[in-house]
């Protein structure tokens, strides 16, 4: 079975290659985003050396690596699943001897791999030429960061799957998908690092999965988290991954009972 899932990753990778032009423009859009945030932060800092413990160099690196991390973990699984449910192509998927949700996850990973290799790495190089970014010197940090990025992908995909599965229960979950996207971007720390959130919000966020998607890995990369804190951050991600499996299983089970295929 593993080879089938690997094949799915490969096929999605091939499909992304077939539409690679989309991604050339994507690199530019991300570079503009990073540039905009860089100048915004520079203006906010003014003469200050540090804000909330971030130096200007750290915030620049944070912004760049967060956006580039987003390039890897971002996918449209929510939309794909909800389309499958609504147009009935889920029926075909159910006649195959595999687990639909794992298949979706693998497809998302194929897409992620493509973006990682052809988007994130070259994008990071381009961005590092344009803006003052400090790369960590310790190779272990890179390894940990990659592992954490993998969990970012898993957690983000899980949230996408949950949102997508809502299509079983409501007639149109477009609004839900939009809300989820904004929530993830805002609360994961892509737009604003969690350190800048008001003090009442931080304890709330500690109980939500969003910071595990961007804030934790980016904090490791920029060197804001060190020593035991790094492993603690990784542990938080693993726990969220494990916890999120439960609602997905529950939803999938009840969805299977409710499933009726649109269009006869």
């Amino acid at each position: 079975m593993a080879s089938a899932y690997l094949e799915l990753i490969r096929i999605r990778f091939l499909m992304m290659l077939a539409y690679r032009v989309n991604y050339y423009s994507g690199i530019i859009i991300y570079a503009i985003n990073i540039g905009a945030y860089y100048f915004l932060w520079k203006a906010i800092y003014g003469d200050a050396d540090t804000l909330q413990g971030f130096t200007v160099a750290q915030i620049t690196t944070y912004v760049a690596v967060s956006w580039m991390g987003r390039a890897f973990y971002f996918n449209n699984l929510d939309r794909e699943i909800s389309n499958d449910v609504r147009d009935g192509s889920l029926a075909v998927q159910m006649t195959r001897p595999y687990n639909y949700l794992i298949v979706k996850m693998m497809q998302g990973f194929g897409e992620g791999l493509f973006r990682f290799g052809l988007f994130m790495i070259p994008g990071m190089l381009v961005v590092s030429l344009l803006f003052p970014i400090t790369f960590p010197s310790d190779p272990v940090r890179y390894v940990v960061f990659i592992v954490m990025l993998w969990f970012s992908f898993l957690i983000n995909s899980q949230l996408n799957i949950l949102t997508g599965l809502f299509a079983f229960f409501v007639e149109n979950n477009e609004g839900m998908m939009r809300m989820k996207r904004v929530l993830v971007d805002l609360l994961s720390g892509v737009v604003l690092p969690i350190a800048f959130f008001p003090s009442w919000a931080k304890p709330v966020l500690d109980w939500l999965p969003f910071p595990a998607i961007t804030y934790l890995p980016s904090s490791v990369f920029t060197g804001r988290l060190n020593g035991a804190d790094v492993w603690q951050a990784l542990l938080v991600q693993v726990v969220w991954f494990a916890v999120l499996i439960i609602p997905i299983m529950a939803m999938w089970r009840s969805a299977r009972r409710r499933l009726f295929v649109q269009g006869g």
């Binding site: 094949e7 499909m15 075909v92 195959r96």
Partner: peptide, 26 residues
């Protein structure tokens, strides 16, 4: 299973790629 109104092949890739994938799936 064949549903006349729904495709079970992958839309964007060559037919043979779909078959190879199905070989592994089954």
């Amino acid at each position: 299973v064949v549903f006349g109104q729904r495709s079970q092949l992958w839309w964007d890739i060559g037919v043979i790629e779909s078959f190879r994938l199905l070989r592994k799936v089954y």
